[in-house]
């Protein structure tokens, strides 16, 4: 296999500022430990991948990071600050996310979706909305301009007035990213951004992720598409049954036996493992 896109920057430049530090995150649902003592660091300018078989706890881990779940144990810090487990405060601090099952505001227009994303970066309240003074109008206009820029960036500007639900699947994914970017995050969490996409759309998504990284936004991405992951990521962590078993660059992950076992089941005669090793 040859890599067609070489990851730039990132891991080679040693130890940039950490953006996200999760330490000892545990999430239990009754008797089930979905996430078990996971540590993960994402540094400035990095794209980090998170892979693992179905039900490994990847999404649950994301939910712990973003305050959707309150972790049973462990802490999450963003740029040195411990995050309170409340989604809106996490977003305000600077972490934005997308969802595995697209969760757009389907009956709002594309532009409105992005405007909602700007909620934390604007502050006009009820009264200024009723009075509509000049400062309100300026802020609203700025928001719209900014949202249009983002739509331009994600290639959706032409569809600004369409209803989100009427977009084709690939564009809905893009819109979710645009909406997340609208909150001006320092870290973007993507949960399977290419699920259900065709090869061209996946390529476009890769480009988009690189472009976002170039804006100075760190990225943590869950994917099942290995090609996508290894093309993009400076580092990849593997989660199996709630535990992080390996973390490292492409070689480290691909050559780790536990990863192969986890993905292909216990080797029967050892043939599968050797195949994957080649």
């Amino acid at each position: 296999m040859t890599t067609d896109t070489a990851p730039v920057g990132g891991a080679s430049a040693p130890l940039a500022e950490p953006v996200l530090e999760a330490s000892g995150v545990v999430m239990r649902f009754g008797g089930l430990t979905a996430v078990n003592k996971v540590d993960l660091t994402v540094r400035q300018g990095e794209i980090v991948g998170l892979i693992g078989p179905n039900g490994a706890g990847k999404t649950t881990f994301f939910n712990c990071l973003t305050g959707l779940y309150v972790p049973t144990e462990g802490t999450v810090t963003y740029k040195g600050r411990v995050l309170p487990p409340r989604p809106h405060l996490v977003t305000e601090a600077g972490i934005a996310r997308t969802f595995q099952n697209i969760r757009l505001f389907s009956n709002m227009t594309v532009l409105e979706n992005v405007l909602v994303g700007r909620h934390t970066r604007t502050k006009e309240g009820l009264f200024s909305a009723i009075l509509r003074g000049p400062s309100y109008r300026r802020a609203e206009q700025e928001s719209r301009d900014r949202a249009m820029e983002l739509l331009e960036f994600c290639g959706l500007a032409a569809k600004a007035e369409h209803l989100a639900r009427n977009l084709p699947y690939g564009e809905q994914r893009k819109l979710e990213i645009a909406r997340a970017l609208a909150s001006e995050p320092g870290l973007l969490l993507l949960d399977e951004p290419t699920a259900g996409m065709n090869p061209q759309e996946t390529r476009a998504a890769e480009e988009l992720v690189f472009a976002i990284r170039d804006l100075g936004i760190a990225i943590l991405v869950i994917e099942h598409d290995m090609k996508f992951i290894f093309n993009l990521c400076d580092r990849t962590a593997v989660l199996v049954q709630g535990q992080k078993i390996v973390e490292g660059d492409r070689e480290t992950v691909q050559n780790d036996e536990r990863v192969v076992t986890a993905y292909l089941g216990a080797p029967l005669e050892g043939t599968t493992a050797t195949e994957a090793d080649q």
Partner: peptide
């Protein structure tokens, strides 16, 4: 008319559409 088409009005509609996603977009539900 004014509130419906403003930051707060959009937040209401977002909450109505999908409360979890709205919270994840920084809206204090």
């Amino acid at each position: 008319g004014r509130v419906a088409n403003s930051r707060i009005g959009r937040a209401w509609v977002a909450i109505r559409e999908d409360e979890t996603a709205a919270e994840a977009m920084g809206i204090n539900g």
